[in-house]
């Protein structure tokens, strides 16, 4: 079976438009260049195989983040081995200087001590600069649920750092007893 005519052009356009974002997304969440390259390769391989499912416009970026999130979750469980792809990319990334040399300091320590759920929602908000509804699309939950998750994660990070989250004070009260 082959893709319909035009699929390749569409995939190439999506690849070129969103490669930097997917690369950043993966690199921010892995410790090794090999894992970053594998995650990029598997994310775009999924996009190519499911090109008909990839939405148009900027929604494609959120869709790719969602795929990359699952790819990285599998990778962390040691369940992803990657295809025979990205050999060159791995070599390139492993010889490039790391964008930020070390992940130390009080903010890193507090961030690392949070749950994976909290870290992801904070990263989506402050590194990928996504809004509540966009975070919801990536995480597969409603915009409201995403906002509440973010609210709670911010609160926990602020507590860990013993700072007051001033933006937090302006947001609505956390619904009691809601399990998200």
């Amino acid at each position: 079976m082959t893709h319909p005519p035009g699929a390749r052009d569409r995939f190439e356009a999506i690849y070129h438009a969103h490669y930097p974002a997917v690369h950043q997304y993966a690199a921010r969440r892995t410790d090794s260049p090999d894992d970053t390259a594998d995650a990029i390769a598997e994310t775009f391989l999924t996009a190519w195989r499911r090109i008909a499912d990839v939405p148009d416009g900027d929604a494609a970026r959120l869709w790719l983040y969602g795929v990359a999130r699952r790819v990285l979750a599998n990778q962390r469980r040691g369940k992803s081995r990657g295809a025979a792809l990205a050999v060159r990319l791995k070599a390139e990334l492993s010889t490039a200087p790391p964008p930020v040399p070390d992940r130390t300091g009080p903010v890193w320590e507090a961030f690392d001590a949070l749950s994976a759920r909290d870290r992801e929602v904070l990263a989506l908000a402050f590194w990928e600069h996504l809004t509540g509804p966009e975070i919801g699309q990536v995480l597969g939950c409603t915009a409201t649920a995403a906002r509440i998750r973010l609210h709670r994660a911010r609160k926990r990070l602020a507590q860990a750092l013993e700072v007051t989250d001033h933006d937090q004070a302006k947001t609505s009260a956390e619904p009691r007893g809601e399990s998200l």
């Binding site: 921010r28 300091g105 402050f126 990070l157």
Partner: peptide, 11 residues
């Protein structure tokens, strides 16, 4: 929190 998170953005 936003400033701190931006400060530890790995890429």
């Amino acid at each position: 929190i936003g400033r701190m998170m931006a400060g530890i953005n790995p890429m």
